[in-house]
Each structure stands twice: as C-alpha cells, then as structure tokens.
Amino acid sequence: MKYLRMMLAMLTVVLLSSTTVLADVPSPTIPKGNAEKCVLPTDEMRVNHMEKILHQRDKTMHDGVRTEQFSFKKCINCHVVKDEAGKAVSYKDERHFCNSCHTYAAVKIDCFDCHASTPNSRKKTSAAGGKH
C-alpha cells in the first residue's frame, strides 16, 4: 500500500512538471471564423474536424452529395484570414487558419496540394441553364 502511494505521488509530480513545461510553450492564436458560430460546437470541431471532412469527402466524390454543413469549401470561405492589404492569405502563409494550429501541433496536411486554400467563388454564368 505504501509502495502504491509512493508511486502515485511520483506520478503526480511527473504530471505536474509536464504541465508546467506545456504552459511555457505559447498557445497558438487561432483566428475566429467569420460566421456567428461553427457548424458544430468548437470543442467538437477541434477534436473531430478531420473525420467530418473525410466523411464528406467520400460522399461528395462518389455520391455527388454537396451539402454545405461539412463542405470543405465552406470551411475555407468562413475561416479566411486576410493580410494587411485585405487579401486572403493562402496556406503558404503561417497566418492561414489551418496553419495556426497545424504548425503548433506539427501535423502536416496535404489538402491544399489540390484544394484551393483561399475563397474564390465566382459568379455563376447562368442559372438553371439546362433542360434535362
């Protein structure tokens, strides 16, 4: 019992010291999105955003489902960060929304090898042009 208590005490010390170390590293400054709130509570998005995007990815690619809730395009449009000149910054810039956390967490993402990292919605040339 005494041995167990000692182990527990040691563990607490280790845990405490590790938190002190973490506190020394500056937390990332995460830019706020442009909408009132995110498509899910922030805590949930922080942990699960990749799952949501992955699920939507396959649904869009294979089933042609293009609903907006977890649309990658919508993430980019809402979480746009602008530079001094008012121009949206690309993923090459460390201020980009995704970079703000991914650089901190040292998680490399390859989404932007293909996807546009800045909003570039264009005007639709004509609506309902087709007669199918």
Binding site: G64, R66, T125, A128
Partner: peptide
C-alpha cells in the same frame, strides 16, 4: 459540380453552355 447542384440550380457543363 454543376450537375450536382440543387434541383433548380442545375446547369449544363461549361462546354455545352
């Protein structure tokens, strides 16, 4: 991305248009 649009917003492919 054009043909998957919602029922009334669907458009022909850019080439045909």
């Amino acid at each position: 991305h054009r043909i998957d649009e919602d029922t009334n917003k669907q458009r022909d492919p850019a080439c045909a248009e």
